[in-house]
Simulated scan of single mutants.
Amino acid sequence: MIHAASLIARFAASDGDSGFEGPSIDEFFPSALLFEGTPFEINRLMAIRILVTIVLVLWLWLATRRLQIVPTKAQAAFESIFMFVRQGIIYDTLGEQRGRRYEPIIMTIFFVTLGMNLTGTIPGLQLAGTAAIGLPLIMALVAWVMFIYAGLREKGAGYWKHALVIPGVPPVLHILLVPLEFLSTFIVRPVTLTLRLTMNMIAGHILLVLCFTATQFFFFTVLADGNLLGLLGVGTFAFGIVFTVLELFVAALQAYVFAILSAIYIQLSVADEH
């Protein structure tokens, strides 16, 4: 492996124009496509987010426009996903009565996260809409506001005591524990929601770009020059396919995790015990 890596590095350094160039952080800060230098600037990442939003709205409208008692295959597929989110995430966590109140926002979080995540594996797009911190941060703040609202709605001003004071602890320890509970509940939760989603999508994008860029380098630069080392492109291409399948799984998993944690935080805010 070390020998192969040194050979790759030597080929990359031998020709600046055709050498191997791996992914960089610049991938997540694409140049402007429209309205450059204005507050309405649209780059590739923003264009992907707008496209996903339009596709989601169109898909949900078409899927619910003509619902039938005996569902078609397309309707059955949609209903299975919808019921998985409703029953498996929202109602199982919050109960049906409370779950109905927060169902629209949690359902939106799930489908937006899923749609944005999947664009990282679509040829021509190949960048997840959640691979830059802005969108995950906004959704995390929505979840943050939602669980605070839920606690205040059901417990009133007593919510702050419920959230920060651990019952049965000697009063002197509250000096230490209350600040820790504040950090854990109101700071760490949105931060971890944001970073978990963003970092997973960044890592997935880098792996895919690395594999397919290396494949192109080996086949069209190294092998084209008659060097059999270019056959390593078969391996990098195979890894690219494997990581694509893995990224599809991660995309769905992260949407599930984000949605269920949002529901769990609401449940913790309204629970009878700390």
Rank of each mutant, 00 (worst) to 15 (best):
W61Q: 08
S80Q: 13
W61R: 13
V57W: 08
F82V: 00
Q75S: 14
V57H: 03
R65K: 13
K73Y: 02
L60T: 03
F78S: 12
R66A: 09
V70G: 01
T72P: 07
S80V: 11
S80Y: 08
S80A: 15
I69L: 09
W59I: 00
V57S: 11
L58Q: 03
W59P: 00
T53E: 00
K73V: 08
L67G: 12
T72V: 08
T72Q: 01
R66F: 04
A74E: 15
L60E: 07
F78Q: 10
V52Y: 03
A77C: 04
W61D: 05
A76Q: 12
A76C: 05
L58K: 03
A63L: 04
A63N: 12
V52P: 01
L62E: 07
L56K: 02
W61H: 12
R65L: 10
V52K: 00
S80E: 14
F82C: 00
M83I: 05
M83Q: 12
V55T: 09
E79N: 15
F84Y: 13
L60V: 02
I81R: 13
L60M: 08
K73Q: 12
A63S: 15
V52D: 00
A76T: 09
T64L: 14
E79P: 00
L58A: 14
T64G: 08
M83D: 09
V70M: 02
M83H: 09
V70N: 06
A76V: 03
Q75W: 07
Q68A: 07
V70S: 06
A76R: 15
T53V: 03
R66V: 06
V57T: 14
V55I: 15
F82R: 08
V85H: 03
V85P: 04
W61P: 00
E79L: 11
P71C: 07
I69S: 14
T53D: 00
Q68V: 04
A74K: 14
I54A: 15
L58H: 05
L58R: 06
P71Q: 08
V57M: 11
V70P: 00
V55Q: 03
L60R: 04
L58M: 09
T72D: 10
Q75Y: 09
F78N: 15
L67N: 09
E79T: 08
F84E: 02
F78T: 14
I69M: 10
F82S: 02
L56E: 11
V57G: 05
L56D: 07
S80F: 09
F84V: 02
A77N: 13
L58T: 03
Q68H: 13
Q68M: 04
I81V: 14
I81T: 13
F82W: 11
A77E: 12
T53N: 03
L62V: 06
K73G: 02
V55M: 06
I69E: 15
A63V: 07
L67Q: 13
I81G: 08
V85W: 01
K73S: 12
L58D: 01
L62G: 05
K73I: 04
L60Q: 09
V55S: 02
V55L: 11
V85K: 02
E79R: 13
F84P: 04
W61E: 08
P71D: 09
